[in-house]
Amino acid sequence: MGFSADGRVIASRATRGDEGSCLADDPRDIEVITASYHTHGAYSPDYYNEVPSGDDMEGDEEEGIDGWVATPGGRLWYIDTEDMVTYQVCGIGCLPSDPRFVRGDMGQIDQSYRYRDLVRLLDQ
């Protein structure tokens, strides 16, 4: 997401990933990138995919941008890389969700996580 050469707000085309990752090319039509966006896509019991990952936060921080992450349960998260905190903007079902999503599979999901706390949670 960002601004075109003529100052319009635009988003890049989505890039399909696989079950565990997604590496997108840098968008060619965005002059100034202001944020990333991606989904954790399909539900999988093998991943804690209802929260952003440490890699999500680290990648955005490295690029100097904030990020947005949608989850299989239909949650939307905002990643603030200045404070290294992620906030749940809206909860289960606020976005389209995977019909195979299992509510509660990850246990309690907090409204926000500091990077270090999120990494600790995901390392359990």
Score class of each variant (00 low, 15 high):
residue 49 N to H: 12
residue 22 C to E: 11
residue 82 E to D: 10
residue 33 I to A: 10
residue 48 Y to K: 15
residue 35 A to W: 13
residue 52 P to E: 07
residue 31 E to Q: 14
residue 78 Y to G: 04
residue 76 L to A: 08
residue 24 A to F: 05
residue 12 S to R: 10
residue 82 E to L: 08
residue 29 D to N: 13
residue 75 R to K: 10
residue 71 T to M: 02
residue 19 E to T: 12
residue 12 S to I: 00
residue 28 R to D: 11
residue 44 S to A: 14
residue 80 D to H: 00
residue 57 M to S: 02
residue 27 P to F: 02
residue 55 D to E: 13
residue 58 E to C: 06
residue 14 A to T: 13
residue 18 D to L: 11
residue 34 T to M: 06
residue 76 L to E: 07
residue 21 S to W: 09
residue 68 W to E: 03
residue 14 A to P: 00
residue 39 T to Y: 11
residue 29 D to H: 08
residue 28 R to K: 12
residue 57 M to I: 04
residue 20 G to Y: 07
residue 58 E to T: 12
residue 17 G to W: 05
residue 65 I to A: 00
residue 26 D to W: 15
residue 20 G to P: 00
residue 58 E to L: 14
residue 48 Y to S: 14
residue 79 I to Q: 06
residue 37 Y to S: 10
residue 57 M to C: 04
residue 26 D to N: 05
residue 65 I to P: 00
residue 43 Y to A: 03
residue 51 V to Y: 01
residue 22 C to A: 08
residue 26 D to G: 12
residue 29 D to S: 14
residue 13 R to G: 07
residue 39 T to P: 05
residue 64 G to V: 02
residue 82 E to F: 06
residue 65 I to E: 03
residue 69 V to Y: 01
residue 13 R to S: 15
residue 24 A to S: 11
residue 42 A to Q: 11
residue 31 E to F: 10
residue 19 E to N: 10
residue 33 I to R: 12
residue 38 H to T: 06
residue 75 R to W: 02
residue 60 D to L: 05
residue 13 R to A: 15
residue 61 E to R: 15
residue 30 I to C: 02
residue 72 P to F: 03
residue 35 A to T: 13
residue 39 T to K: 10
residue 66 D to K: 05
residue 73 G to C: 07
residue 25 D to F: 09
residue 36 S to W: 04
residue 72 P to N: 07
residue 20 G to R: 13
residue 58 E to W: 07
residue 31 E to H: 15
residue 57 M to W: 00
residue 20 G to Q: 13
residue 12 S to H: 05
residue 64 G to W: 06
residue 53 S to N: 08
residue 34 T to C: 10
residue 63 E to N: 11
residue 84 M to C: 04
residue 24 A to D: 02
residue 36 S to G: 10
residue 53 S to G: 01
residue 74 G to N: 13
residue 83 D to A: 14
residue 26 D to K: 15
residue 35 A to Q: 13
residue 84 M to W: 01
residue 54 G to H: 04
residue 23 L to Y: 13
residue 74 G to C: 04
residue 54 G to Y: 00
residue 21 S to R: 15
residue 63 E to Q: 14
residue 46 D to M: 11
residue 38 H to V: 01
residue 73 G to F: 03
residue 67 G to M: 01
residue 17 G to E: 03
residue 53 S to W: 03
residue 79 I to K: 04
residue 46 D to L: 13
residue 69 V to M: 01
residue 79 I to Y: 01
residue 47 Y to T: 04
residue 83 D to Y: 11
residue 21 S to E: 11
